Simulated assay, not measured.
Amino acid sequence: MPRALPDLSHQALFPIRPLAFETNASFLERLARAHRLTTTELLDGLRIRRPKISPDRQRIHGPHAPTELYLNASARTRVSQYTGIPEAHLAHALPCWQGHQDRGPATATRPGGTMRPSDLPAVTGCPHCTIARTGQTRPVLRYLPHQHLVCGRHRTWALGPHTLQDMTVPHTHVLLHKTPEIVLAHHAHLRLVRRWGPDADEAITQAAGLTEHWRRHAPKAERIWPARARLIGNGKDTSMWEVLAREAITYPETITLAGLLVRRPSARYHRTRPGQPHPFHEVVARSLNRRWLQDPTYYPEDLSHFIRHTPRHPDHPTAYRHHTKPTPGHRPDTIELTQLGYQPPPPQTTSRRQRAR
């Protein structure tokens, strides 16, 4: 027999507060789970039509919410009334809360919505902070700004979901207990954002592109970045961690370089011929304590080539992620991990004896 439709005309017995930057789908799932319902049953009980599922689109490279739930104005009002949380508070905490585009008054007044992938980078928040704030061990998917990927209290870095051969890589966070310089860089990152705002965002974006370029083409004399990968991975699968945690590995140098760029904006846009030295190269080498960066061959012809603008979070203009849209069919994470020989865990199969039971 089909399960009876729950009566949700009254206010929620177990009010659930959204976490900052949480996805709509995660918030509604937690709300439903608190009342021992599925998300579909919750929406049915609120008399909200089941959202339409939009076809999957080409996603921007990087971690993204697999599926986001967008509700129209009428549906958002019903959820707000049920939870007892004003819509203004929900819109402030949930970046995509008002992401549904109502087409005409009929669409806005009929409670419903759509399900489709989000264009904003999404990661699972710090597991320790999630337990403290929700009382549950289940991960919470959030659109965390880049400066909040590091949890200084619990020394973790949120990686975000990565897949290989359509299977999730079993690592969602980096442990930073053996790399205190990354945590210190996180505090410097926060100071840069508070002082310089969007200028710091642009400088960090460019600095991240440069340090990633250097990581890929660093000479054998470079020892710090491979050492960080070993510390992060606790001496295991170093090559894999160099790919998964590449932003974390170069993060201290990225923030140092960004501080240099934001204070010398004219240096960011200089043009030189390939192989031609520039005073800025010497300044960078001295600031990062790497002599090999005096060599102009490690720099692009135009530093502004590394500036990449990506979609930003609504109401949070300094939130960014320096992933770029790849060419069709190109999946950098998958290609790199495959070349490293990473094998996802084999699917669990059921033996004949177990099936017979």
Rank of each mutant, 00 (worst) to 15 (best):
L192S: 00
L303T: 04
R142V: 03
A203D: 05
R223Y: 07
R133V: 04
E22K: 10
S74A: 15
V140H: 00
H162W: 11
Q81L: 13
V284N: 02
H10L: 12
H309E: 12
T205W: 00
L340F: 06
E87V: 14
P279R: 08
R263Q: 13
S118L: 10
Q348N: 05
P317D: 12
H173F: 04
A106W: 03
Y298S: 10
H316Y: 03
G84L: 12
P311F: 12
I131S: 08
L42Q: 02
L337D: 01
L192Q: 01
R216H: 10
A208G: 09
L303Q: 08
E212N: 11
V169M: 05
G62L: 00
A285G: 14
V174M: 05
T124E: 09
G62A: 03
L120I: 10
T134R: 07
H10Q: 11
R273P: 00
L176A: 11
H313E: 05
A203M: 13
Q101N: 09
G341P: 03
N24Y: 02
T38L: 09
V169W: 03
L37S: 12
A25D: 11
L159T: 02
D333S: 07
A207R: 04
A185C: 11
L43I: 03
T297I: 06
L192T: 00
R76M: 00
G275L: 06
T350S: 07
A122L: 13
P180S: 11
H173I: 03
P145G: 05
R331F: 12
H173N: 04
A218T: 07
E212R: 15
P161H: 06
L210T: 04
A208H: 03
L261K: 00
H316W: 05
A32G: 10
T205N: 12
H305N: 12
M240V: 15
G99H: 13
T107R: 14
T114Q: 13
L261S: 01
W241R: 02
H35E: 08
L244A: 00
I16E: 08
P328T: 09
P345L: 08
I48P: 01
L244I: 14
A73V: 05
L260P: 00
G341W: 14
D333C: 04
M115A: 15
A258M: 09
R116Q: 15
R195E: 01
G84Q: 11
T179V: 15
A75M: 05
A188Y: 07
F306H: 14
N24G: 04
A34W: 02
I224D: 02
P332L: 08
T39W: 01
P277C: 01
F27Y: 13
R47Y: 04
L37G: 08
R138H: 09
P170S: 07
R264F: 02
N24D: 09
R246M: 02
T205S: 14
